[in-house]
Amino acid sequence: MTSDELKDLIDSIKVEANYDHKAGNTTTTYKLPEEALNEEVIEALEANFEHYKSCTVTGNTLTLEHPDVDD
């Protein structure tokens, strides 16, 4: 996965997480593409979403637990 592809993936996840948050959901699940299923990309995702309560990858699914936010 190139750095541009990683950036696009992170941007897509952020959009999905934002929609979920606005809908009142406390978690976001995102199906990762096959090329993202390696340690380097997963570490980059975890670092990028470290401000979430949790960021886990199980199989090919990324799960983000949204932080508590005062609206």
Score class of each variant (00 low, 15 high):
Glu16Ala: 14
Ala17Thr: 07
Asp20Gly: 00
Leu9Ile: 07
Gly59His: 12
Ala36Ser: 14
Lys31His: 08
Thr27Cys: 03
Ala36Leu: 05
Ala44Asp: 11
Asn18Glu: 13
Leu6Thr: 09
Ala23Glu: 12
Asp70Trp: 14
Leu62Ser: 04
Met1Ala: 07
Phe49Thr: 01
Leu32Glu: 06
Leu45Ala: 01
Asp4Pro: 01
Cys55His: 05
Thr27Leu: 00
Leu9Arg: 01
Val15Ser: 10
His21Glu: 12
Thr63Ser: 13
Leu37Trp: 03
Thr27Val: 05
Phe49Tyr: 06
Ala44Tyr: 06
Lys53Arg: 06
Asp20Ile: 00
Gly24His: 02
Lys7Arg: 07
Pro33Tyr: 02
Ser54Asn: 10
Tyr19Pro: 00
Asn60Pro: 08
Asp11Tyr: 10
Cys55Asp: 02
Leu64Glu: 02
Asn60Leu: 02
Ala47Gln: 15
Cys55Leu: 08
Val15Arg: 15
Asp4His: 06
Glu34Ala: 13
Ile10Ser: 03
Thr61Tyr: 04
Glu35His: 05
Ser3Thr: 09
Thr27Ile: 08
Val41Tyr: 07
Asp8Trp: 08
Ala44Lys: 15
Asn25Ala: 11
Pro33Ile: 08
Asp4Ile: 08
Leu32Ala: 11
Val41Pro: 10
Pro67Tyr: 12
Asn48Glu: 14
Met1Arg: 01
Ser3Pro: 08
Leu62Asn: 04
Glu39Gln: 12
Asp4Thr: 13
Ser12Val: 03
Leu32Gln: 05
Glu5Leu: 14
Lys22Val: 01
Leu37Asn: 02
Lys22Ser: 05
Asp4Arg: 10
Val15Phe: 11
Asp20Leu: 03
Thr26Lys: 14
Glu46Met: 15
Asp70Thr: 15
Val57Trp: 02
Thr2Asp: 15
Ala47Val: 12
Val15Pro: 04
Thr29Trp: 02
Asn48Pro: 01
Pro33Ser: 10
Thr27Met: 03
Thr63Trp: 11
Asn18His: 13
Glu5Gln: 13
Lys14Ser: 10
Ile13Cys: 09
Thr63Met: 15
Leu37Gln: 09
Asn38Asp: 12
Tyr52Gln: 05
Leu45Ser: 04
Thr26Ile: 13
Asn25Asp: 14
Pro33His: 06
Ser3Glu: 09
Gly59Glu: 10
Ile10Cys: 03
Thr61Glu: 07
Leu64Asn: 03
Leu32Lys: 04
Glu5Gly: 11
Lys53Ser: 06
